[in-house]
Amino acid sequence: MQMTDIKHHLTDALLMGYAAGTLPEAFNLVVATHISMCDDCRAALAEFDAVGGEVMMGADSAEMAEDSLTATLNKIANAPAATKVRAQSSGLFPTPLQDYVQGDVDAVKWRKIGGGVSQAILPTSKGATVRLLHIPAGTAVPDHGHRGTELTLVLQGAFVDETDRFGAGDVEVANEDLNHTPVAEAGMDCICLAATDAPLKFNGFLPRMVQRFVGI
């Protein structure tokens, strides 16, 4: 499901980290989901993968065990051929995201977190967290800053903050420098996939209280 008018893309650092395999799983999910929607970043990733291949081939080689080839041929004889590529998603969520939700948008188990906003935390390894956010049209997410990096990918609708407008397929990469109040555009509820490697810092007292209970 490629989108044509994506304006906000992944950074080189994220693409390189994804290609190198050094990002936390939660970030990998946002990157893989964005690339499913964005041909530009798909092409850029192919280049970073190619750099990885050349780095690997340019380095020294290690000696293989004596019976290595035979052992490998035995493994091949005992394993079935790989299955065909999976079909493309026909729903709202691209397939990597559907794998984590175990279904499309109607399979999400939303939990209200106040102010009309709902979330669903997806299971990933430690180091970073990722959640789906449902923000009703015209609603604001409380003003917050970031301790680490926060990636927000829009899947449906759009939000606007102090920096720009983010529509379907756009990804916002926020760090310590950004304090923002994202507001969902009128018209359609906004659904986002957001990953962070540190808890968000809410700037008001009440949101801070709420944060302790909802675990953003």
Partner: peptide, 22 residues
């Protein structure tokens, strides 16, 4: 390289590796 990288994530981190849609 991409196969080796995914294998490394598998064994060192024991994580799933989300891959883009084909």
């Amino acid at each position: 390289f991409t196969i080796a990288r995914n294998r490394r994530i598998d064994i060192l981190r024991k994580e799933r590796r989300p891959e883009p849609e084909e």
